[in-house]
Design a binder for these strands. Structure first.
Lengths: 350, 350
DNA sequence: CAAAAATTTTGGATCGATCCAATATTTTCT
DNA sequence: AGAAAATATTGGATCGATCCAAAATTTTTG
């Protein structure tokens, strides 16, 4: 193993018999150096095993890292987020744009203690679902551009989100139009709380859903229901983590007379499909199910799942572009789309 | 918006009435500064909105980035890799260790042209499946530690892989022991070639599988078959991309009399399951299927898929630890494990 | 209370490059 | 060929911190 110190630009310059500046130019602004000299420098570099200007030093001079930092949703660790198929979809969107511009993608664990947003070497941040705007403070102080996902953070902060209210509305209206009148809702928990059941007859406040965007979905459900003369307060709600495998069971136990289930998650929607089959119910004859967000699994489940396309990949692409374009503040609101598949049909009973 | 220049350590030092060095120590070696002075500096920093030493400058001085670079498999782009569930598993393993040590995870597009391995700001690299060892050259020249996945790269380079030959052997032996004698193999392509069919009766060279690790699987298959007095040259092989949705169809078309299919990919295994059902065959009565690699989908498919656990997450954890431990070269060989589920049974015909 | 020992603080050099104004060289023009 | 214009090259200053040996201060000891 060669343990001589790493060659620097100065070494190359000396070996090629030119000044540091010329050597620097040969690499970073080749057009300004005579071809002949440029080659001499290239040859010297090759012989010394010099790979080009040290990115660390380059960085210090003009601060462009060529990387984008992703902060996964606050409530989950990095590993958990990567496992979530919807988040994954979003990441692919970001990665696509990074690929285009040749930038790196840095995944930043949310630990405040050591490093994190305060010290990560990136040109900007994409915050996935934040609990408090305060989490973005280090980014602001570092004067790095950032985008907040799934929430409107006011006129001074860029944000990308999907119209969740509209998504919820589309999902519920679809079921209402098919003739359903008895519903069950699978909602999200905020943070790490235990799975929770909300019986009918109680008004639905913000505590019946997780983050802001989930409350919007609930609002959308309520709106479509109310257009049909129904009150969401009469719909039983199960609130669980997206990966909770018992939630589907609880849902069907608690709402045995429901003919349609509205799920705020795709995976929970698919879980309901599985649980219904396990109980010998036929979907969509005995039960209709609509999920939220589109992932490949939705099309491949049996039956395939009717779901709302939450445009996760598109959100990722858009967020990345906002960072790389370095333009003014942008607040984007994407429109969701209902994808009707085989898990919904008119109710047979009732 | 505040557009005054970013405050530096010097500004803080001046405001606190101490020297640069003392201010620096107050942040980076607090034990060496008197508590009283330390607080004075902290107060000055707070008032100026100074967040602590600029990571960019810190970096230049002593070069520790606190991040690990991941180079996705050469033949796919970043976005494609992230979509691959097995790669995803591997990434989760890496992320887990990064979480532990509070490091960032940098995903590096494989474009050689601009940046990439030559300039990424990381402390080390994990190369996923490389075509040529030459791709790791920039890492070596930068004297950064790196690990090569899924291939043994000799005694001077750290590597982590699973014993693919053993995995193949376990899969094929399982089927042989169940009594199968007629097989079909779904293999991988190297790079971007078109889907390819290898008829029986031709000797199987390395061109019948993709990367080194896939050739090992093939060798394992051959070994178990030969123990049962069978020649792999008589087994039809379909070579396709892991995401090719037509490969399963071709496989069943080309090997209609096969009672068992050996797939080098999980997803292709599941695709065969689907295709078989579509044709009205019953798995495992009419056809047995074994996949390679374990992902959640394998347990959830109908019927659940017998597969070889390729220890993807474990590989990720191990590779990350090798980088962070900064120890000597390590060459790890993990043992695969056969997970028997419901997609395999003795053949009914034949 | 002065001298010795221990603890804090300090300025200069450094990390490896880029930028800029000044200088040197080559090319173009009359 | 000599002057003017265009093009290349150069050394000094700089980016924002850390390291280190020397100087200043505080604490301990005889």
């Amino acid at each position: 193993m060669n343990h001589s110190p790493m060659p620097t630009l100065l070494d190359v310059a000396r070996k090629a018999g030119v000044s540091r500046s010329t050597a620097s130019n040969a690499f970073s602004r080749p057009d300004v150096v005579r071809a002949e000299v440029r080659e001499k420098v290239a040859k010297a570099a090759l012989e010394l095993g010099y790979l080009g200007p040290d990115p660390k030093a380059k960085l210090l001079r003009h601060g462009k890292v060529n990387a984008i930092g992703i902060v996964p949703p606050g409530e989950w660790g990095v590993a958990d987020s990567l496992k979530n198929p919807v988040y994954h979809q979003f990441l692919s969107g970001v990665a696509e744009v990074c690929d285009e511009v040749g930038a790196n993608l840095v995944i930043i664990p949310d630990r405040i203690t050591n490093g994190g947003v305060g010290t990560a070497l990136v040109d900007g941040f994409i915050f996935g679902r934040i609990e408090h705007l305060r989490d973005t403070e280090p980014a602001r102080l570092r004067r790095l551009p950032f985008v907040v996902m799934d929430a409107d953070a006011g006129p001074d902060i860029s944000s990308v989100r999907v119209d969740a209210r509209m998504g919820g509305y589309l999902a519920a209206r679809h079921l209402v139009e098919l003739g359903h009148r008895k519903f069950g809702i699978m909602s999200f928990l905020r943070g790490f709380g235990p799975t929770r059941y909300h019986p009918p007859g109680v008004p639905r406040g913000p505590e019946a859903a997780g983050m802001e965007t989930d409350q919007e979905k609930l609002r959308g459900y309520a709106e479509a229901l109310s257009e049909a003369g129904l009150d969401i307060a009469d719909v039983p709600i199960v609130q669980a983590q997206p990966w909770d495998r018992d939630a589907a069971r609880m849902m069907l136990d608690m709402a045995p007379e429901a003919t349609a289930i509205l799920s705020m998650a795709v995976m929970q929607g698919i879980a309901v499909l599985d649980e219904a089959r396990r109980r010998g119910h036929s979907v969509p004859r005995d039960l209709s199910v609509v999920g939220f967000n589109e992932i490949p699994e939705a099309a491949k489940s049996t039956p395939s799942l009717t779901t709302v396309d939450g445009k996760a990949a598109e959100k990722g692409r858009m967020a990345a572009r906002i960072i790389f374009d370095a333009g003014p503040i942008r607040r984007e609101l994407l429109l969701p789309r209902l994808i009707v598949r085989s898990s919904t049909a008119p109710p047979s009973k009732g």
